[in-house]
Nucleic acid binder design. Structure first.
Lengths: 338, 338
DNA sequence: CCTTGGCACTCACCACACACGAGTGCCAGC
DNA sequence: GCTGGCACTCGTGTGTGGTGAGTGCCAAGG
């Protein structure tokens, strides 16, 4: 077990390294923080911390830098979440309040997060699986061609073309539309499949083929669109990454372009509470020198999607976590209002 | 006027510099290209080219590199467009053919372009202004709340909420829907305003307010959504930019995040034919060391949107132009088919 | 008039040596 | 268990000289 002071030393190392981006030595530490002990003592503590794998030296006769494990300990036990100041909170709320539609909400959120944390921001669109159906609409575009429009409670709209096996009259269409809506409106997406299961049977034999096609398209939409969309921003902040530029930044940019990777990344985060993945804890190799701070957000008490930031492992964790949490909270409010 | 050989020298310089990314000297030039003259002669030619501002030396006693003006001359008079090889064409077509909807087409296009050119690709969504209306749908969500859905011939869907001043019955709704569609379906967006101008007058006094509201929302949608969307990809290719990294790449990333900037960029390109903006020819300051190759594409003979790539001024112009042109052509085909 | 070989000059780049200093580990003493 | 002292390591910055690619200019030849 590490003594209280040694933890304090680790905290000081993380703090200084995050600030200066340079290995921190024993002397500098005692000068900047009043630890009440001499550099020699700190050196002993550092040796112990290194022994345990919390810090490392880039090369002999240089200061120490925190390892992934060191950061882990830091966020778990040494650092709190730094709350936003009231003016910051007001600014967040004002900025988000101006949004006019869902795209705008997500767009503003991503810009806001990027700006607050000066890192790369990732915001997932509210997920279909956890949302509820507001309305299903069927439009007749041609005798045997329909358009299926799905509207969610989070304001998202999905549409699909449906080619019918046989012409489908306006009355049948109105009938189907009405019955479909009475069954699924207000229900969760995950419940839809069993709610519409036997719907086709109640139709005329002539129309049954079309109804089945429509229903399967609807279910397809649900499944396919569970493959979620997201928006990223603030990639310019990657330039503040470090000195050994191209090598570090390239894989990160590549990872950010693979939405699949990012979705998996956010998916791995716990549903409630904040998740911090540090360095190699991230499954994706290209992100092994980055940390991901993510949190769920939602219009009600339940999370419908996630958002977060991607930055260097050497980041200001308390501040970043504070910003992420605050933004998630306000986005949730905005969504609940609309 | 520059002699034929001097132009040839310029072409050789551009070619070599693009390949090696290093200033090219007279000796190396005569060795790699059989110009039939000695280095001394080339030196004289280079002095003349420098005098005219087509090339420059980074520092005394180094080779020459092309200036923006030099590249300009190169693309205007010295280089053709390098056509894609048949296998490449097939690959493009195959890749694009797999697309399932508009988002997918745009997404695939952007990835394809980025991969082919190894640069940053920008693809604009088919513009609303130049498309035609396929269908307008009105849904009643609540007694005094409607949803307006607009479907374009390019498969794009826009929706808006409409809060009515008074409850609006189903029959009135059906009536409005029918009349609206008979007027605007198949028509160009730009013609819609005058087509619906006097529509409200033919309705009951009770409904007139709602109809007016719906119409103005429709017109708003047309105007607002003329603010186009676009997709970018291949930002990881920025890492191949040059050596003096952070300074060059940062403003580019920032510019790429400002969709407004990119839209203006594409907007400046001529409607038909390919446009190449080199270095400082780009209005945006952050892009002063990049070149933008863009071209319009469309489902018919007319361009409905633009696409292009952003890369270092030191790029392979013939190859890039060939790829951009080929991709635009095939995307146009795909759109026309769907 | 254009081309060519020759020649002196410039200057970025590299390798090497060297001094400096921040930082370390270890140890004896308090 | 903390502290001061001490010898040691080693990355970094600086200066120096050599090398070579590249240049501009010039005088001679087609």
């Amino acid at each position: 077990m590490l003594s209280e002071r040694r933890l304090e030393v680790l905290r000081a190392i993380v703090h200084d390294y995050v600030g200066t981006e340079e290995p921190v030595g024993s002397k500098a530490l005692t000068e900047r923080h009043h630890l009440g002990v001499s550099p020699a003592t700190v050196r002993n503590d550092m040796a112990a911390l290194e022994e345990e794998g919390f810090i490392a030296q880039p090369h002999t006769s240089a200061g120490r830098i925190p390892t992934d494990k060191g950061y882990r300990l830091f966020v778990d036990r040494l650092a709190g979440v730094k709350p936003m100041t009231p003016p910051e909170r007001r600014a967040i709320q004002n900025f988000l309040d101006g949004a006019v539609d869902l795209d705008d909400v997500v767009g503003r959120t991503v810009r806001l997060l990027a700006q607050l944390t000066r890192q790369v921001a990732v915001v997932q669109y509210p997920s279909l699986t956890r949302s509820t159906v507001r309305h299903v609409e069927l439009l007749s575009l041609a005798p045997a061609r329909l358009m299926l429009v799905l509207i969610t409670d989070t304001g998202r709209v999905e549409q699909r073309m449906v080619d019918c096996p046989a012409p489908f009259g306006e009355t049948s269409l109105a009938d189907l539309r009405a019955r479909l809506n009475s069954r699924v409106a207000g229900r969760r997406f995950s419940d839809v499949p069993q709610l519409v299961q036997d719907l086709a049977e109640s139709f005329d034999k002539d129309d049954r083929g079309t109804v089945t096609t429509v229903l399967s398209t609807l279910l397809e939409t649900l499944v396919e669109e569970t493959e979620e969309r997201l928006m990223i921003g603030g990639t310019a902040n990657l330039t503040r990454f470090g000195h050994d530029f191209p090598l570090t930044i390239r894989p990160v940019l590549e990872a950010l372009e693979e939405q699949v990777v990012l979705l998996k990344l956010l998916g791995e985060a716990t549903d409630s509470g904040m998740t911090v993945k540090i360095g190699h804890e991230n499954a994706h190799e290209g992100l092994s020198s980055t940390s991901v701070v993510s949190v769920g957000y939602g219009s009600g008490s339940e999370a419908v999607a996630k958002l977060g930031v991607v930055g260097p492992t050497r980041m200001d964790y308390p501040g970043t976590m504070g910003a992420v949490r605050a933004v998630a909270r306000y986005v949730g409010q905005i969504l609940a209002e609309s």
